[in-house]
Nucleic acid binder design. Structure first.
Length: 477
RNA sequence: CGGGGCAUAGCGCAGUUUGGUUAGCGCGCACGGUUUGGGUCCGUGAGGUCGGCGGUUCAAAUCCGCCUGCCCCGACCA
C-alpha cells in the first residue's frame, strides 16, 4: 500500500499535522496561529460539547454568555492572574476609528469579568451557589501554536461557580474534575489520571488546580481538562460579598473549570494509527458508514436499494452515512473512511445481498481480522453491540498502552530514563525550583500529584526527603 | 524571541548549483468512456503575477539585498 500518511513511529508530529488536515478536521488560517475548524472537526467538537453540556446540566449548572471584551484594568485586579496572562493578551486599542480611553482585552479566560458581574448579582447567602457555564472562544497570544493543541484562538467551555463556603467550592471543584474524568473515559475512551497541579503548574490566580492527564501515542502527556479551586482570590479582587444567615458580610468562594478544543487533539493522538483517525464511537460524527459495492451497472440498483434500506434501519439508532459517491472504488472509500476514523464500516455487495448479510469492519482492528459477516436480521443489535465493543477496546488499548509506558521509579537517574519512554511515577517532595531543575535536565514536567498517598512511603526521587506523595512526571504537550 | 528548514498549478514536488526562447511531473479537479469485494484504467481539458518588493543583467523561478508567511526544534502555555 502506498503511503498516504507519515507513519507515527517515523515522525509523530508530522503524522499529527497530516492527519488533522487529511481527515478534514481543520485547516490553517491566514492569521498566524489560528485555525479553521472544518465541518468534520467541528461536528466532533459538537459531540464533545453535547456530552459535556449534558453532564453540566445534570450537575445543576446553567449556561450564560459573557462578553469577549474585558476592560484591561480588570485583569490587573488579581495579582497572580495578571502576571500569568499579561504576556499572552490581545489588546484592542481602537474602536470606531477612535483610540479607546481604556484598552479592551480580548478574554484569555473570563474569571475577571464574571467576577465583576457576580459582585453585582450576589447579595445574600440565598443567592448562592451560582453555577454558571459558558461556551465561548478565548484568545491567548501563544508563541508557538499547533492545530487543536495550542491555537491563538480556541473554543472551550468555562464554568464559573460561587459558593458560600470553602468546602462547597472544593466539593464543586472535585465534582467537575470527576465529570471530566467520566466524560473522558465514557465518551472519549480516553483513560486519564486525575490529580492536582503543583504550585508551579497551577492556574494563575487559583489556590489549587486539578487536572486530568492523558497519555498520547508518543508517550507524551496532555492535559485534557482542568478544574480550579479559586478560594477567595477573585472574590476579594472583585469584592464578591454576601450577607450570611447572621447578617455578616462574607466573601464567596469560587471555582472555575474548563475543557477546550484541545480535547480533539487528545482524541486524535490517543487513538489514531497509521491509517488515520480512530474515533471513539460515542463521539464520532459518523458512527457507521455504508459502502455499497457493485460490479456491473445492473447490480447497482439492487445494491443501492439494499444499502438505502440498511441506512433507513440504522438511522435514528446510530449516526449513519451511506457513501453513494460515484466513480470511486470500494477500496478507495474504505481507505477514505479509515482516514476519517469512522468506527464501523458496513460493506454491502451482490454476494452479501444473495446471502442476506453484510460485512462489518471495525476501524480499531485493521484489515480482514476486523471484519465479520452479519446476517441482516441481526443488523441493528450487532451494530450497537459492536459500537460498545469498539469503545471498550479503544479504552482498554489506550489504558494498556499507558500502563506499559508508566514506570515506578525510585531514583532520579531512573526518572531521567523513564520520561524518555513515558510517565514516571515517583515519590515527590520537591518545590518549584526542584521541578525547574528536573525540567531543565529532562524536559519533563510534574504533570500531577495523585490524591492517594503511596502505600509505602519513602524518599523523594529528587530531594531525598521522606514523603508519601506520589507524582507523575512526563514530557508534555 | 533564538536555532533550523521551506515558499514554483488545489496538494506533493522537479527545475535554482552553472541565468537563455513556450516552466515541467505526479496526484487532485472538469468532461467522455471504462471500471468498482482494499487507494481502477484510457483519452481530452482547465489551471501559474515561480511568496512580495527592490537590485544586477541584453535576459532572472535561477544571482544579490530587504521583507513576509508557514513548518520543525527551544524558551512560554489549555
Amino acid at each position: 500500500m502506498a503511503e498516504f500518511l507519515t507513519p507515527q513511529h517515523e515522525d509523530f508530529s508530522k503524522w499529527y499535522n497530516e492527519i488533522v488536515l487529511k481527515a478534514d478536521l481543520a485547516d490553517y488560517s491566514p492569521v498566524r496561529g489560528c485555525m479553521v475548524i472544518k465541518p468534520y472537526g467541528y461536528t466532533l467538537w459538537e459531540r464533545i460539547r453535547e456530552e459535556l453540556d449534558r453532564r453540566f446540566k445534570a450537575t445543576g449548572h446553567v449556561n450564560a454568555y459573557f462578553p469577549l471584551f474585558i476592560p484591561q484594568s480588570f485583569l490587573s485586579k488579581e495579582a497572580e492572574h495578571v502576571e500569568g496572562f499579561a504576556p499572552e493578551l490581545a489588546v484592542v486599542t481602537h474602536g470606531g476609528g477612535k483610540k479607546l480611553d481604556e484598552p479592551l482585552v480580548v478574554r484569555p479566560t473570563s474569571e475577571t469579568i464574571i467576577g465583576h458581574m457576580y459582585a453585582k448579582w450576589i447579595q445574600s447567602y440565598r443567592d448562592l451557589p451560582v453555577l454558571i457555564n459558558q461556551w465561548a472562544n478565548v484568545v491567548r497570544w501563544e508563541m508557538r501554536t499547533r492545530l487543536f493543541l495550542r491555537t491563538t484562538e480556541f473554543l472551550w467551555q468555562e464554568g464559573h461557580t460561587a459558593h458560600a463556603t470553602s468546602d462547597e467550592a472544593m466539593e464543586e471543584t472535585m465534582r467537575m474534575l470527576n465529570v471530566y474524568t467520566d466524560f473522558a473515559v465514557n465518551e472519549g475512551a480516553l483513560p486519564v489520571i486525575p490529580g492536582r497541579k503543583s504550585e508551579k503548574e497551577k492556574f494563575a490566580g487559583a489556590v489549587a488546580t486539578y487536572t486530568i492527564e492523558a497519555m498520547m501515542k508518543d508517550t507524551k502527556a496532555l492535559q485534557a481538562g482542568t478544574s480550579h479551586y479559586l478560594g477567595q482570590n477573585f472574590a476579594k479582587a472583585f469584592d464578591i460579598q454576601y450577607l450570611d444567615e447572621n447578617n455578616e458580610l462574607q466573601y464567596v468562594w469560587t471555582t472555575s473549570w474548563g475543557v477546550s478544543t484541545r480535547m480533539v487533539g487528545a482524541i486524535v493522538m490517543a487513538h489514531g494509527d497509521d491509517h488515520g483517525l480512530v474515533l471513539p464511537p460515542r463521539l464520532a460524527p459518523i458512527q457507521v458508514v455504508i459502502v455499497p459495492i457493485w460490479r456491473k451497472n445492473k447490480e447497482k440498483a439492487a445494491v443501492l436499494a439494499a444499502a438505502r434500506n440498511i441506512e433507513a434501519r440504522l438511522r435514528g439508532l446510530v449516526r449513519v452515512k451511506l457513501d453513494e459517491r460515484e466513480g470511486l472504488s470500494p477500496g478507495w472509500k474504505f481507505n477514505d473512511w479509515e482516514m476519517r476514523g469512522v468506527p464501523l464500516r458496513v460493506e454491502l455487495g451482490p454476494r452479501d445481498i444473495e446471502r442476506e448479510q453484510v460485512m462489518i469492519a471495525r476501524r480499531d482492528i485493521p484489515g480482514r481480522e476486523g471484519k465479520v459477516s452479519v446476517p441482516l436480521t441481526a443488523l441493528e443489535t450487532t451494530v450497537q453491540t459492536l459500537l460498545d465493543t469498539v469503545h471498550q477496546a479503544l479504552y482498554q488499548k489506550a489504558l494498556d498502552f499507558r500502563e506499559s509506558h508508566t514506570y515506578d521509579v525510585k531514583t532520579y537517574d531512573e526518572l531521567k530514563e523513564a520520561v524518555q519512554h513515558g510517565f514516571a511515577r515517583v515519590l515527590w517532595a520537591g518545590d518549584g525550583e526542584d521541578e525547574e531543575a528536573v525540567k531543565a535536565e529532562t524536559k519533563a514536567t510534574l504533570r500531577c500529584l495523585l490524591a492517594e498517598p503511596a502505600e509505602t512511603p519513602g524518599k523523594c526521587v529528587y530531594t531525598g526527603r521522606p514523603t508519601d506523595q506520589v507524582a507523575i512526571f512526563a514530557r508534555a504537550y
